[in-house]
Design a protein around this nucleic acid. Structure first.
Length: 344
RNA sequence: GGGUAGGUUGAGCAGGUGGUGAGCUCCGCUGACUGUAGAUCAGCCGUCUUUCGACUGUGGGGGUUCGAUUCCCUCCCUGCCCA
């Protein structure tokens, strides 16, 4: 799922997303409720109509903002009070209010309200946030607003195996429509992420519900996660990294601001069929970024989203024809080195 | 020709009224980004050195002085005003 926090996958139109092969996108409870407000979106016909996206939408509950906006909120057992980064006004988010907002937005999948913490915190703090997330999971389910909206629960517990085991069992014991793994890709090592996914996979066993790894990932992370049974992802990287001048290709990452690319007449990736690769050169993109032309952000985002979704298509195909390990190895090799443009 | 204001590291500036000028913003170079407070942020950006550090640099030349960006002489260049 490309991430469209504020009712837009930044720099892309719904048409761009469809052309890139996007099936489902993500929206955000906290940000949309602050502006333009959930009630306004509801009056305007819901998030799908508001942003003109007719595919599935998953809404994050605001749990991530408990982490990313840590300086602007206060957590208690009942919920979280935020001080708006926009105007300083206070806003209260509880499991019930989060579910209500997500119902107003009309997303297809709502996420339980959770508390994400830095896994490096003292273990009693990680445990406390996990236990709170569990209680909030109960309340989120009890508050689900519409029968046509799926609700996913979120496993927390940092990178502590025993906490993760407990959390996975606890969340899987509830009648959620899907199980999410939260609290990863927030600064822990690759090894810690893999180990944590392993613990969760074991704890979930043959539970048939879809498994969603929140906030991941990088091209390499997809393979690690799928090896541990993950089905669904969301990540800001393809679009954020694109806006900051980096594109992903089969040969690895390419920093479009590297001076060498100013004279490169080739496409970003010769195997990619996106609008940017079909019509424009690396030199042109390098120029657009230097000139800070708006088209730079759209073309780079079109490419990264297209390339990433195509990579996942190839990943799925490789699972069917047995070439998963080969594909994983080639992607890991391409992305283990620095920028492709500055490699010797 | 006379007057006047200037000339600082790629560009634009700050500073400095005899006691160590490497400070800022651009530009440029490189890197980072994982449920988006991000078209953002960080480092570097005179020379040598990986670092520490050393050295050079205030238009040119000369002078005074222990010491000159500062004072004096002269020349060059630029803007503006007058003739």
């Amino acid at each position: 799922m490309p991430v469209g926090t504020q009712a837009t996958v930044k720099a892309l139109t719904p048409g761009d997303l469809r052309a890139a092969g996007a099936q489902m996108i993500l929206g955000n409870t906290y940000h949309l409720n602050l502006r333009p407000t959930a009630e306004r979106i509801a009056r305007l016909g819901g998030l799908h109509r508001f942003m003109s996206w007719d595919g599935p939408i998953l809404t994050d509950s605001g749990g991530f903002q408990v982490f990313s906006l840590a300086d602007l909120r206060r957590v208690d057992d009942d919920g979280v009070t935020f001080i708006s980064h926009l105007d300083g006004s206070t806003h209260r988010l509880t499991p019930e209010r989060s579910m209500e907002i997500q119902a107003l937005l009309g997303s297809d999948v709502a996420m339980a309200f959770d508390q994400l913490v830095d896994p490096g915190l003292p273990s009693h703090e990680v445990e406390e946030a996990m236990e709170r997330t569990h209680r909030w999971a109960d309340r989120s389910l009890a508050a689900r607003g519409r029968p046509d909206q799926a609700v996913f629960g979120i496993v927390q517990g940092g990178v502590d195996p025993s906490l993760r085991r407990r959390s996975a069992a606890r969340i899987a014991g509830l009648p959620f429509d899907g199980i999410a793994v939260g609290g990863l890709s927030v600064g822990e090592s690759k090894a810690e992420m893999a180990a944590t996914l392993d613990v969760v996979a074991t704890a979930l066993g043959d539970d048939p519900r879809p498994r969603y790894l929140m906030g991941v990932g990088s091209p390499v992370d997809f393979f690690t996660a799928v090896e541990h049974g993950i089905d669904l992802f969301d990540c800001v990287l393809p679009t954020r990294v694109a806006r900051t001048g980096q594109v992903w290709t089969d040969a690895g990452r390419l920093n479009l601001r590297n001076s060498a690319l100013q004279d490169d007449p080739g496409p970003l990736d010769p195997t990619c069929a996106c609008e940017a690769c079909r019509n424009h050169s690396r030199a042109y993109l390098a120029h657009l970024f230097r000139a800070r032309e708006l088209l730079a952000y759209r073309l780079a985002s079109v490419h990264n989203v297209t390339w990433t979704l195509e990579l996942l298509r190839r990943l799925r195909a490789s699972l069917r024809d047995g070439s998963f390990d080969t594909l994983a190895a080639s992607v890991r090799a391409a992305f283990s080195r620095g920028s492709a443009s500055t490699r010797a």
